[in-house]
């Protein structure tokens, strides 16, 4: 469990970090909280000759809530999400989800940016960001650009981010509707067997907006437009929820692992999705 030799860099601003990434190409990787990357290096499954630690770049941390928009710096830790007062009002689903990530030790170190940027299908934040329709802010040698979370993930560990780009922040609209993040896992510290985020807005007994996204049920997070559509315009009665669950489960493609075979995961996913929707509706 000892990584191969590497050079350690600790730039003080984003420009220097990007310069290092450009210089070293695919030999370089940024280091955030290290709780995904360092285990991979220790197992020698990732060989990184140049580690570019982002922790000295102050601009990359912090949570801002302004004009109905939430912006979270990439280096904000998962723990910060849990203890931030304003965020619990502006997007309570984030806190609920963050509390279900790993354990406190991991959350003190693990960052939102690392969790979102990584492209690990087990990570909870990507599905959540798709659920919230978040925008990812990337900066590279050619300047900055924005990518929708719903367009960012291509396959396991394959994303729209270029090797020399850094994720600086994530932003999304304040969301105060009904919410729920349901996750089944084997124990504290485990990735999801099945997880689902649900956001439901109801006005006068009718659903006006709904967004459903799932974690660890395919090689990318899955946002199901059809599942949300099945709820919008209904009273979220049993028939509508059945339709939403059917649409969501049709979109997933889990694989067998130590958590269980595909049939089990498909079944549990259906249950978890239903529970997420029901709880979100009950809070809407």
């Amino acid at each position: 469990m000892i990584p191969a030799r590497f050079e350690y860099h600790r730039p003080a601003d984003v420009a220097s970090a990007i310069a290092l990434l450009s210089e070293h190409g695919d030999e370089a990787r940024v280091l955030a909280g290290g709780h995904s990357l360092i285990p991979m290096m220790k197992l020698r499954m990732a060989a990184v000759s140049h580690l570019v630690d982002l922790q000295d770049i102050a601009d990359l941390s912090g949570i801002r809530i302004e004009g109905g928009r939430v912006t979270i710096g990439a280096m904000t830790t998962q723990h910060d999400l849990i203890v931030h007062d304003g965020l619990a009002q502006a997007a309570p689903i984030l806190r609920e989800a963050a509390l279900q990530i790993a354990d406190p030790q991991v959350r003190y170190m693990g960052t939102v940016g690392g969790n979102v940027a990584n492209g690990d299908p087990g990570n909870d934040m990507p599905g959540l960001m798709q659920c919230l329709d978040a925008t990812l802010h990337l900066v590279g040698p050619d300047g900055s650009r924005e990518v929708a979370a719903r367009d960012y993930y291509e396959a396991a560990y394959m994303t729209a981010r270029a090797d020399d780009e850094i994720l600086t922040a994530i932003s999304f609209d304040v969301n105060t509707g009904g919410y729920a993040y349901e996750k089944q896992k084997r124990k504290i510290g485990d990735y999801a067997t099945a997880a689902c985020g649900a956001l439901v807005t109801m006005e006068g007994g009718t659903c006006t907006a709904a967004s459903i996204a799932m974690t660890n049920l395919a090689d990318t997070p899955i946002w199901s437009e059809e599942a949300g559509a099945a709820l919008v315009g209904t009273a979220c009665d049993t028939a509508a929820i059945d339709a939403a669950v059917a649409a969501a489960t049709a979109a997933i493609d889990p694989t067998e692992d130590n958590r269980g075979p595909v049939a089990f995961k498909m079944h549990v996913a259906g249950i978890i999705i239903r529970r997420a929707i029901l709880r979100a509706v009950s809070r809407a």
Binding site: G260, A263, F264
Partner: peptide
């Protein structure tokens, strides 16, 4: 574990 308990229930037709 979860899936083996699920498998019991499934095998007994409880789903």
């Amino acid at each position: 574990d979860h899936w083996r308990i699920w498998k019991i229930a499934n095998g007994l037709g409880l789903h």
